[in-house]
Design a binder for these strands. Structure first.
Length: 276
DNA sequence: CTACCATCCTGGTTGC
DNA sequence: TGCAACCAGGATGGTA
């Protein structure tokens, strides 16, 4: 499911429930998701206070008092749901439950189990295998045209594939890659190394803007994504090209102008007239 | 470096 | 109605 805006939406939901709260009870209902959970995962966070709920790229990072970090990645189908009162019965694919000292229940559900849970000392943050090679945060001041162009470097791969590379820019996924390229007027097929100067400025701004717009809309709900309250996100109604193959281009009005094709095994949507 | 493929899983949709 | 094929927001690792 989740790209950066969906993860940020989840973070904003979890933060008020968890920050400053003590995890009175933690239960992991299976020993593994994509990877095995570290031994004693649930036991080691039980009784601990959560200092903050942060995000890096598509990773949620919970700072646990005592110097540990709990990492959570939602994979394709992960969801968090918060229950302020008595929670309903467990559902299929509920894999983790946290109950805070104020009686709030937080459940992680992930049918496809591509998600990740990890727990490690905060000294290991910079060198964590999953975090070490991530590129710039697209919403940070460090991300602009020159930074993007530098990340693209001499790559001869298509620009769509390049911005899906988490080392180039962290947090862009398949939906927002197509949407950002449409906003920037750049063809997804364009060779990455040719995106420089003006085009790079435009694309960096388009990435930032589309992510911010999506966050403001609570993310995009296609199948799985929900806010922690259970509410749907609604940015999917603002997609210009994603999922709109065969439709009229909203940019130039060309009938059936939105085309769909496969890049790197994943669907890309674009308008050949608006995007060069 | 690049392209391409398979892999980890389940579930919803599509097409016969 | 049934069933199989296909597709899905991610990411890694292997091969050529």
């Amino acid at each position: 499911m989740p790209e950066l805006p969906e993860v940020e939406t989840v973070r904003r939901g979890l933060a008020p429930a968890l920050e400053g709260a003590v995890i009175a009870k933690a239960t992991a209902f299976r020993p593994d998701l994509r990877f095995p959970l570290p031994p004693g995962f649930a036991e080691n966070i039980t009784g601990k206070r959560v200092d903050s709920v942060d995000r890096r790229a598509k990773y949620l990072l919970l700072r646990i008092a005592g110097g540990m970090v709990m990492l959570s990645h939602l994979g394709m189908s992960g969801r968090y749901r918060i229950y302020k009162d008595a929670p309903p019965a467990l559902e299929p694919h509920d894999h983790l439950e946290l109950v805070t000292d104020s009686g709030v229940t937080i459940r992680y559900n992930d049918p496809r189990r591509f998600g990740i849970l990890d727990l490690f000392p905060e000294e290991g943050l910079a060198t964590h295998k999953l975090l070490a090679s991530l590129g710039p945060e697209p919403l940070s001041n460090a991300f602009d045209g020159p930074a993007l162009a530098a990340g693209l470097g001499d790559k001869r791969t298509a620009i769509k594939l390049a911005i899906l590379d988490q080392r180039v820019v962290a947090g862009v996924g398949n939906i927002y890659a197509s949407e950002a390229l449409f906003r920037a007027g750049i063809s997804p097929k364009r060779t990455a190394r040719t995106v420089k100067r003006g085009r790079a400025d435009k694309l960096a701004a388009a990435i930032r803007d589309v992510l911010n717009d999506a966050i403001a809309a609570g993310g995009s709900s296609l199948r799985d994504h929900r806010q922690t309250s259970g509410e749907l996100g609604y940015f999917q109604h603002s997609f210009k090209v994603y999922g709109r193959g065969g439709e009229t281009c909203p940019g130039c009005g060309t009938e059936a102008g939105i085309r769909q094709f496969v890049q790197g095994g994943r669907s890309t949507f674009y308008c050949a007239k608006c995007q060069r």
